[in-house]
């Protein structure tokens, strides 16, 4: 590991300025991704600006009905927070399906959003990787592809974004509050992360020195019935092969009046399934239409030889999650599968 200077930030704008002024500086949150990368040689900052002492660690209800989550709120505290469990259970579920109890006690909301891909070649400095070293090539194109993208990839990078939390936030239409040295702005979560294109070294649209200070959830009544489903190689403590966050609201006649679907493990960013949403909205809530919506979303899928199975997996995961949230929205009358539990609605 390269030597580095460690500093504690005094305030948000100051922290942003400290990092903006030095191309070799980085913010330190829980460190569970950054310190790992420093050990691996994937990152080599010369200055670490520790922001965990800044007062960005509250979860609070907003007057307009939403909820504001401070950037430093730990993943475990967020998952356990009563407001999140009651009003946005999909977020609590997504957080609890990620990493381990010990890691969630360290990981912060902002750090989770900005964690980098788990592509094995990105983490191995002895192999070419366009994301780590632009222009060197992509080892995954001829390599291990099980955890790689089936949607929105480019010839330069086929990596996926690994966060579970970000998938739930995408279904919830969250806004990310960003502070630079001078001003504050809001970035919709769907526009925070990028597709790789010709510049896979940029995971997000943020500039160097942009500090995430909070994430805001809008008031969303149907989120009460939203659910997260994660498919992985072992039952716990593993990244997603495919994951789905979904919410549905039903009209008086039982048809789908509104729906939100986001996918994880399939693309360079948390994937908002707009085609599937459009296929479902304002029509009957039937098994056939759930399957058709899943097919519509994956029509553009371009799997790699090593992950063709993910297309069918994503289709069935979407269909199963829609079936589950539909049962929840109707009042939890069964066939919800894991998470539905057939309990009566209050």
């Amino acid at each position: 590991m390269n030597p580095f200077d460690y500093r504690r930030a005094e305030d948000a704008a100051g922290a942003a300025a400290m990092v903006a002024d030095n191309p070799a500086a980085a913010f330190l949150g829980g460190g569970t991704n950054l310190v790992d990368h420093m050990k691996l040689g994937v990152a080599a900052p010369e200055v670490l600006v520790d922001i965990t002492h800044l007062p960005m660690d509250e979860v609070e209800a907003l007057p307009e009905g939403g909820v504001r989550i401070g950037a430093n709120v730990r993943n475990s505290d967020l998952a356990a927070h009563p407001l999140i469990r009651r009003r946005y259970p999909v977020l609590s579920q997504a957080l609890l399906s990620g990493a381990s109890g010990q890691l969630r006690n360290l990981a912060t909301t902002a750090g989770n959003l900005l964690q980098r891909t788990r592509c094995v070649y990105f983490q191995d400095t002895s192999t070419p990787c366009n994301k780590r070293e632009p222009g060197t090539g992509c080892s995954a194109l001829e390599g291990y592809q099980r955890y790689h993208a089936i949607l929105g990839a480019s010839p330069d990078c086929v990596a996926v974004h690994p966060s579970d939390m970000a998938v739930a936030l995408t279904a919830l239409d969250a806004q990310v509050v960003v502070q630079d040295a001078a001003t504050e702005r809001r970035v919709p979560i769907a526009r925070l992360h990028r597709l790789p294109g010709e510049a896979p070294e940029h995971d997000t649209v943020l500039n160097h020195g942009d500090l995430i200070t909070a994430v805001e959830l809008p008031d969303m009544p149907m989120a009460v019935h939203a659910r997260y489903r994660k498919v992985r190689d072992r039952a716990s403590f593993a990244f997603a092969l495919v994951s789905v966050a979904a919410a549905m609201s039903l009209g008086a006649d039982g048809s789908v009046s509104d729906v939100r679907i986001a996918l994880g493990g399939v693309a360079h960013k948390p994937w908002r399934a707009l085609r599937a949403e459009e296929a479902l909205r304002d029509g009957p809530a039937t098994e056939e239409r759930f399957a058709a919506a899943a097919r519509a979303e994956l029509a553009e899928a371009r799997p790699l030889p090593g992950n063709t199975f993910k297309v069918a997996l994503a289709r069935s995961a979407i269909t199963a999650t829609l079936r589950q949230v539909h049962a929840e929205a109707r009042g939890g009358d069964g066939h919800g599968g894991p998470g539905g539990h057939g309990e009566e609605q209050r």
Binding site: S76, A79, A80, P82, R85, R86, P89, S92, Q93, L96, S97, A99, S100, G101, Q102, L103, V224, R227, A235, S236, F237, G332, G339, H341, E343, R346
Partner: peptide, 30 residues
Amino acid sequence: WPSAATPPRASAEGAVAELDDTEIRERMSG
């Protein structure tokens, strides 16, 4: 605190999970 093994309904109501083997395995998976 809930875990990934806690049914979301129970979690939303603030019910504490009974620590059966499934809960213990999930909470100790790290």
